[in-house]
Write a protein that binds this DNA or RNA. Structure first.
Lengths: 206, 206
DNA sequence: TCTTTACAGTGACTGCGGTCACCACTAACC
DNA sequence: GGTTAGTGGTGACCGCAGTCACTGTAAAGA
């Protein structure tokens, strides 16, 4: 418990104690879907360890919105919780993760009492908004090869590893394109010496 | 002044009085640039009448982020003001507009004291985030013809008019494409009886 | 073991839209 | 008047990426 307290130390100790007292802490294995579209939100997650992926789905295409890294929360859940409206997005753990689950009934109370709790979420909103802007600028300006390369690079950095295990189909989903396109471009990136593919794992060079 | 009070009546009367007391109200003519990228924000606008366009610029391409309609504010300004960081976006009046300009030094104070003031901005953030999601879904799923048509429709609805005056070049900017593409598609939409063009004005049919 | 399922590779085709080049028209300004 | 800047219209070209069809391979399940 002490380590969690330290991690949350950017908040007032009094609030940290409250959060730890009223919330539950859970380990969630990799690949678990923790939030579905249309689902009502009963607990607000703050990630302590691991990595959670938040994405939306248009038609059959899914699009990655953002990753929740340690010490971050999910503004989509926050708002859905605050307004008691169903979620517009999906969330899934990409790594084994440790999360604090704050029961939503405490949100309005703490928001009223602790100004820095508000600020936490303003910061998160702003972060997510910036990320969406980056996504849009990629969609507008970049060709698929650059989008794919940057995406792979970001993914490897996030899990602090040298290579990642992921299928072309999955990558196609995350970038909103088709599997064949990914295969084609991966081949090109491989020929250019920018990536390596070995038994289902992808490694970024440079 | 009475009318402004009424417009702001979704906030507590006490807060409304404070806002009106400390802020200035200004009429801003159509086409005025009220916020530049990299500029520090000294006053936070809330639009009472008219229409303000907020957009970003990547390379030479500009992209419309959102319109601030009456009773809405600008989360980009809000955050830049709160954190005293320079703006990442541009804002320009699209119509003659009446805005309240709240001096930024009052923001932290009122946010602390009035919970519903926080909620106002959470609402705005969520609204803008949803709009960006829509923008992304358009970018991902729709062809230019649909994007252009929807864009024109939205624009005419926003200014509650039957037609709008705008150049093809400007439309190309707003959609992040080239002038020739707009001309080409406008021709097609005209042939399909979906729009009419007359002396620089564009009218949506149906 | 055989079968099924998921995944990867590839060639062919197609269309959207970005770009270039050029012309035409209007309005503003000298 | 002539010149310039802003606008719109068009034809030609071409590359990216979406799609279809089919093959090959590896893993999983019966």
């Amino acid at each position: 418990m002490e380590i969690d307290k330290k991690i949350l130390s950017f908040l007032k100790p009094e609030l940290v104690d409250l959060i730890l007292k009223e919330s539950s802490i859970r380990m969630i294995p990799k690949g678990t879907e923790i939030l579905r579209q249309q689902q009502y939100v009963k607990v607000l997650p703050i990630v302590l360890k691991g990595l959670v992926k938040v994405y939306s789905r248009f038609d059959e295409k899914e699009l990655l919105l953002y990753y929740i890294e340690p010490l971050q929360s999910c503004v989509m859940s926050f708002y859905a919780a605050l307004k008691n409206t169903p979620s517009r997005v999906f969330a899934q753990t990409e790594e084994n993760s440790k999360v604090i689950l704050i029961p939503v009934q405490y949100l309005p109370i703490w928001l009223k009492k602790y100004p820095e709790f508000n600020e936490l979420f303003f910061n998160q909103y702003n972060l997510r908004y910036s990320e969406l802007l980056d996504t849009i600028s990629h969609l507008l300006l970049d060709k698929m090869d650059k989008r794919l390369y940057d995406h792979l690079k970001r993914k490897t950095e996030l899990i602090s590893n040298t290579s990642i295990k992921i299928s072309h189909t999955q990558l196609a989903n995350e970038l909103g394109t088709a599997r064949e396109v990914i295969s084609r471009i991966m081949k090109k990136l491989e020929n250019d010496g920018k990536v390596e593919q070995n038994s289902g794992r992808i490694k970024i060079i440079g």
